[in-house]
Design a binder for these strands. Sequence first.
RNA 1: GGGCCCGUAGCUCAGCCUGGUGGAGCGCCCGGCUGAUAACCGGGAGGUCGGGGGUUCAAAUCCCCCCGGGCCCA
Length: 1064
Amino acid sequence: MENRFTIGLGKNYNPHDIEKKVKVFWDEENIYGLVKEKLKGGKRFYFLDGPPYPSSPTFHPGTGWNKIIKDSVLRYKRLCGYDVVDTPGYDTHGLPIEVKIEKELGVNTKKDISTKLGIDLFIERCKDFVLKNVDALTRGFKDLGVMMDWEKPYLTLHNSYIENSWQLIKKADEKGLLDIDLRVVHWCPRCETVLADYEVSQEYREITDPSIYVKFPVEGEDRTYIVIWTTTPWTIPANTFVMARSDAPYVKIKYQDEYLIMSEVSAKRLFNEDEYSVVERYSGKDLEGLRYTHPLHDLVEIQKKLHEFHKVVLADKYVNLEEGTGFVHSAPGHGAEDFDVAKTINAPVYSLIDDEGKFTRDAGKYFGMYFREANDEIIKDLESRGYLLRKGRITHRYPLCWRCKTPLLLRATRQWIIRASKLRDLAVSEINKVNWIPRWAHDRIASVVENMQDWVISRQRFWGIPLPIWVCGSCGNRVVVGKVSELVNYSPSMYPPKDLHRPWIDQVELKCPKCNGTMKRVPDVADVWLDSGVAFYASLGDNGLDKFNKLENVDFIVEGHDQTRGWFFSLLRSGLILVGRSPYKTVLVHGFVLDEKGREMHKSLGNFVEVAEIIRKHGRDPFRLFMLSSTVWEDLRFSDKKIQEARRILNIVWNVYSFAKSYMEVDNFKFDRSSIDRYSGILRVEDRWILSRFYSVLKNVNDKLEGYRIHEAVDELVDFMVNDISHLYLRIIKRRVWIEENTDDKLAVYTVLFKILRDWIIAFSIVAPHISEYIYQGFVRSIDENSRSSVNLENWPNIEEYRRFHNDELEKAVDVLRDVHEALLSARMKAGIKVRRPVEKCLVLTSNDHISSSINTVGTLIKELVNCSEVVVDSLSNKDKYMYRDVEPDLARIGREFRGLSSRIVDFIRNNQDLVINELTSKGYIEFSIDGHKVKITRDDVKVLEKFKPDYAFVERDWGYAGITLKVSDELLALGIARELVRRIQVMRKELNLDLLDEIKAVIYVDDQDLVNVIMKVRDYIMNETRSIELNVTSSKGDVSNMDLVREWDIDGALFIIGIVKVK
RNA sequence: GGGCCCGUAGCUCAGCCUGGUGGAGCGCCCGGCUGAUAACCGGGAGGUCGGGGGUUCAAAUCCCCCCGGGCCCA
C-alpha cells in the first residue's frame, strides 16, 4: 500500500522527493477536509491571521517565517483537539495598490482617474491586480506546508467585510466619537490625500531647501523690523502671526541703518560683534502684542482679512532658541503648532494650497503656482521690497510620501475623525489584561497607547472601504449606516449596489429623515488601518460581530514587532471603540528576517533571497526547521549554512526511522497498544530510561508550547532525537535487535522504540509536516495497523501514558553514564586501544556517592558501550592500588639554595622516594643531613607526580578517575581479532550489495598457525555475526578462485586474505 | 532626542529572569567507527562574556554609565 512512502536501508533522505509525494497525498486524500471534520465541535481556538499586503505575487522570507510560526501553533492546537479558526487573510485596499495601477495605466493625477479613466475601470483593475496576487501568495504559503483554510480566505475587499467594517464607524457615531474637524495634516499633493502620522514617519529624506531671514516691518516704527527665519518661504503668504517665548531675552539692535528685533543669542549668531549695537533689551513678555505689517500684504488676497492678527503671540512651548531668531512665523493652515496657537487666540485658519499642491485664488499673485516652485518667486518679491535679510540653502530631513517620494506639505483640511484619545485610559488598562510574549512587548505597546491620538479615518482616494456616512445637502443632517440593509430604510426604492466600492456606492442617495432632502455619501474612503483593525470580527463573514461575540475573543495573534504600532494597536483601538475591550488575549511578537550580515533584506540592496529559491535549494522542511529553531522574538539572520544544518538533523531523524523500520520489518513486528503493558515487566534499564526521558521531554515541550516558546520546544524535541535516541539509545540496543529469534527482550525493545518514535513524529509534525507525514505513512502505518490515515489526524502524545515510567534518579544516572562513558573512551584513546578490542575491566575511582550509585544503576550499559567485561567502582581513597607517586626535585630551586650540596641532595631524594613523600605529606617538610650539614627540604622544592601502574590507563575528571585495564586474556584477544575480522567481512558484504538476510560462505587465510588456532575459538561468533553458513580458517594458501570477492587485509601487522561467496 | 531589543569561541547562538568553576552546533586540527554509512563517534585548539564603574564572600547573570548594531517613534 505505501509504495510511495518507502523507508528503509539504502533509502536516503531527499526532501524534495518526500515533500512532493506528501503534497500529492494530502491533496488527493483531502486531508485538510478530514482534519476539519474530525475537529468539528471540539473546543474552539480563535486564531486571527494578520493579513499580508498583496502588492506583489512573491513574499519576503520574513512573511514565510510569519506563516510558518502560525502553522506550527495551529498544528499543535489541532493535534490537541482544538477546532481552530484558521482563516488566512489579505489586506487588499490602499494607496500602494492604487499607485501601481496608476503606473500600469500611465495616469498621473487623481483627476485623470475620475474624469478620463473612470473610477469604475480603475477599481476593477485594482481588484484584478489584488486577486491575482492573492492567488500567487496563497500558492506560495500552501507550498510551505502551511495548513489553513486556503479555499476561503478573508479579503478586506469582500462586500461582507466592508459591511462588517461599517459597524465600527456606526458604533463610533453612537458613542459620540465620530466627528468632522479641521486638522493640519500631512498631505501628498501627487496622491492628493491625507497621510497618517504613522505613514509619514516611514520616509524622511535629506533634501535641500531655502533658508531665509525675513524682516516683518513693525507697525508705526520707522525702519524697525521683527526678524523671522523659515525654510518654507511658500508659507509666508499665509502668515497670520508671530510666536515668541516669554522668558527669553530679546534685543533691538542697530544694524546698518535699520533696527532689528530678535533674540539675543540669534543676534550674536547672525552678526559679528562690530557689525551691530544693542539699542534696547526686552524679555519676550514685553513684546507681546507688538504689531507688524505683512511684507506681501498687497500681493496676497487673503492678507486683507488677517491684518488684525499680525502681532507677537507668546507660545513658549513652540519656540526654541537653538535655531532661528526667537520669532516663529506662523501660518495656522500649514503647521500643527501654529494651528494650536491660532485656536487659543481665535485666529482664522486658512490653507492657501489646494489638493494638488497649488496656490488658491486667495493667494493672489501666486495663484496657480505649485507650492515648492513658488519659493523663488516669493524670495524675489521679499528681496525687491527690501524685506529679505539673508538667504541661503539648508539640507535637512524632510518628510516624503512613502509611495511616490513626493515632498509632503502640511495643510489644514476637514477630515473625519474618531476621538480615540478619549479611550486612552481604557486602553492602558486593557493592555494589562493581554498576555504579551515576550513580556517587553507590553512596554512597547504601552508607550504607543499612552500617546493615543484622535484617529483621522478619512482618505481622499478610491481603492478602499467607502465611509458609510451620508450627509444631507439641505439640512446638513448626517447618517451613518452600519449595514447594507439599513440603506433601504432611508430609501425604500433603492437597490444596493452589487459591489460596495466606489464609484457604485457613491450613486446611492438617501432621503433625509429630518427634512426629506437628498443625502449624498461623503466621497472619502477609510484609512487602511480601519480595514485590518476590524479583522477580529469582520473576517468572520456575514454578521461577523455576532460570531465574534460567540467566540468571545481572539485567542492568539502573532506578527512582527513592527506591528506593535501597526496591527496590534489598530486591532486594540477598534476593539475599544466597538466592544469596549481588547479583542485579543495573547500576542506573540516575532523578529525580522535579516541577511547573513544582519542587514535588512531588500531587493534594492541585492541581498534579497526568494523563498522559492530557498525551497528549491534546501527543501521545505529544512527551511521550516531552521526558522522554527530561531528565537521567535529576536531577529533572525538568514543563513544557508544553518538551513543545511537543519537538513542534517532531519537526515538523522530519517536514519533513525530507517534503522528502526529495517529491523522491525525483517522481524515482521507489529505494534499493538497493549504490548507496552505486556512487556513492562522485562524492560531493561535503558528502556525504562528512554521512557522516563520521553516523559520529561514531553512535559517540557508541552509547557513551552503552551507559553508559545516555540523554538525552545523545537530544541527540546530535536535534542531528544539526536542525543537520546540516535546517539545513545540506539547504540545501546543495537545488539539486542541483531538477535535473530523474536525473543521477548527484542519485542520489548521494539515496543518501546516504536511507541516513542510514533509519538515523537506526531509531535514533530508541527515543525516539519512533510517528513513527518512521510514517516508516519512509511513507518507508523506499516507497523501499527490501528493508526490513522494521516499524521494530521492523530492526537498529540498523551503524557499520562508515560507518567508511570518517570524516574528522575534514572535520568540523572544516565547523565552520569554519559560523563563516565566519555571519560572511559578518552582513557582507551590514551592507551591506543580501539573500542572494538574488548578490555577486561573498566575502573571508576570516586568518592562521589552520586557517581558510584549511578554506575551501579547503569553499569551494564557501560559494559556495552565501552566494550569491557566488568565495571569496577572503587573509592578514591584506594587509588594507591592503581597508581604510585614520584618525587621530582626542582633542580633550579635546590641548586640556588644548596649550591655544592645540590647533586647529593637530589640523589638522596631520588633514592628515598617513599620516605620523602611520606614526610612531606605528613609534615610538609623533611630534614636529613648530608656530610654533617642539616638539610631541610619543603614541598616547594619538589614536584610530586602521580603515575599509574603500567597495567592501567586512567584519565582524571573532577569527580575522580576513570580507566581501563591493559592486560588482555587470550580469550579477549581472540574476541578482539574476531571483531576485526567481522568488520572486514561486513565491509565486503556491503561491497557485494548483499541484503541484510543473505547468507554467505567464507574463507580466512593467515600465514600463522597460532592465529588460526585463536580464530578457531571464535569461529562460531564470526559466522553468526556475518551470516556465514560455512567458514574455513586456514594457514595454507588454498583455492579462492570460486569466491565472489577476495580481499587482503592488514590487521595489527598480520596479513589476512578473506574470501566470501553468496549462497544462492 | 525617547522607548524597546541585541552584543558570549573563527561563525550562528544557548546560558542572564532566579548570582556559585562559561556551554552547544558548525568550522578547524588529530584520531576512531563501519549491519543508520553522502551517516556516525571521541579528543584537541580556540573566550578581557562589547567597555567602564557599582552591589556582593562571589557577577556573563543584578544596578548605573558609555560604545556598537537593530526596531519603533520623535
